[in-house]
Amino acid sequence: MVWRDVDPRLPTMEWDYFISHASEDKRLVASPLAHYLRSVGFRVWYDQFTLKLGDSLMAGINTGLANSAFGVVVLSPPFFAKHWPQRELAGLMAVAQGERRILPVWHGVDADDVVRASPMLADLVGVSTRRGLNAVAEEVIRASFPDRLDSLPVSNTRRESPADLREALATLTDMLDDGASRDDVFLLVSAYHDLLRTVARGGDVIPASRISGTVPFDFAAVSTHGLTGPMGLEFIVLGPTEAAEDPAALLNRLDAGFGTTVDFHERPYNDYLSGRLVGEFPEVRKVAHELAGLIESGNVHHAHPDRWRFSITLLNGRRAADPSALARRDELASTSRIPLHIASYDRLTDLDVSSIRT
Results as ranks from 00 to 15, higher is better:
Val185Tyr: 03
Phe219Ala: 13
Leu133Ser: 09
Glu160Val: 06
Leu196Trp: 03
Arg197Pro: 13
Leu187Tyr: 07
Thr214Asn: 02
Arg142Leu: 03
Ile141Thr: 14
Asn134Ile: 10
Val185Phe: 04
Ala200Glu: 09
Arg131Met: 07
Pro162Ala: 15
Ser151Val: 10
Ala220Lys: 02
Met231His: 10
Thr157Val: 11
His193Ser: 13
Gly126Tyr: 00
Phe219Gly: 06
Ala180Glu: 06
Asp164Ala: 15
Asp164Lys: 05
Val154Gly: 11
Glu167Tyr: 07
Thr228Ala: 15
Gly229Lys: 14
Met231Asp: 12
Asp183Glu: 13
Ser128Gln: 02
Asp164Ser: 09
Gly232Arg: 05
His193Phe: 12
Arg159Leu: 14
Pro119Glu: 11
Arg148Met: 10
Thr214Arg: 13
Ala200Gly: 03
Pro153Ala: 13
Gly232Asn: 04
Leu227Tyr: 04
Leu152Lys: 02
Phe186Arg: 15
Ala135Asp: 04
Gly226Val: 12
Ser212Asp: 14
Asp178Val: 05
Phe217Asn: 05
Asp218Cys: 09
Asp204Glu: 10
Pro216Tyr: 05
Thr173Tyr: 02
Asp147Arg: 00
Gly232Met: 01
Ser155Cys: 11
Arg130His: 08
Asp218Glu: 12
Glu139Tyr: 10
Asp177Ala: 14
Gly202Tyr: 00
Val125Leu: 05
Val189Glu: 08
Asp150Ile: 14
Ser223Met: 05
Val140Lys: 00
Val136Asp: 03
Phe219Gln: 01
Val140Asn: 05
Ser209His: 03
Asp164Glu: 14
Phe217Ile: 04
Asp184Thr: 05
Val205Glu: 08
Phe217Met: 10
His193Gly: 14
Val125Ala: 12
His225Ser: 15
Gly203Gln: 15
Val154Pro: 15
Arg142Gln: 08
Ala163Ile: 08
Ser118Asn: 09
Ala168Leu: 01
Asp174Glu: 14
Val205Gly: 08
Pro153Val: 12
Leu152Asp: 07
Met175Tyr: 15
Leu233His: 00
Asp164Gln: 08
Val205Met: 01
Ser190Tyr: 08
Leu169Trp: 05
Val189Ala: 13
Pro207Leu: 08
Thr214Glu: 14
Ala135Arg: 04
Arg148Gln: 13
Pro216Asp: 03
Ala137Thr: 09
Pro207Trp: 00
Asp164Asn: 15
Ser144Met: 02
Phe217Tyr: 08
Gly232Asp: 10
Arg182Asn: 15
Leu133Thr: 09
Arg142His: 10
Gly203Met: 02
Gly232Leu: 00
Leu187Ala: 09
Pro230Phe: 02
Ser144Trp: 01
Val222Glu: 08
Ser223Gln: 03
His193Ile: 01
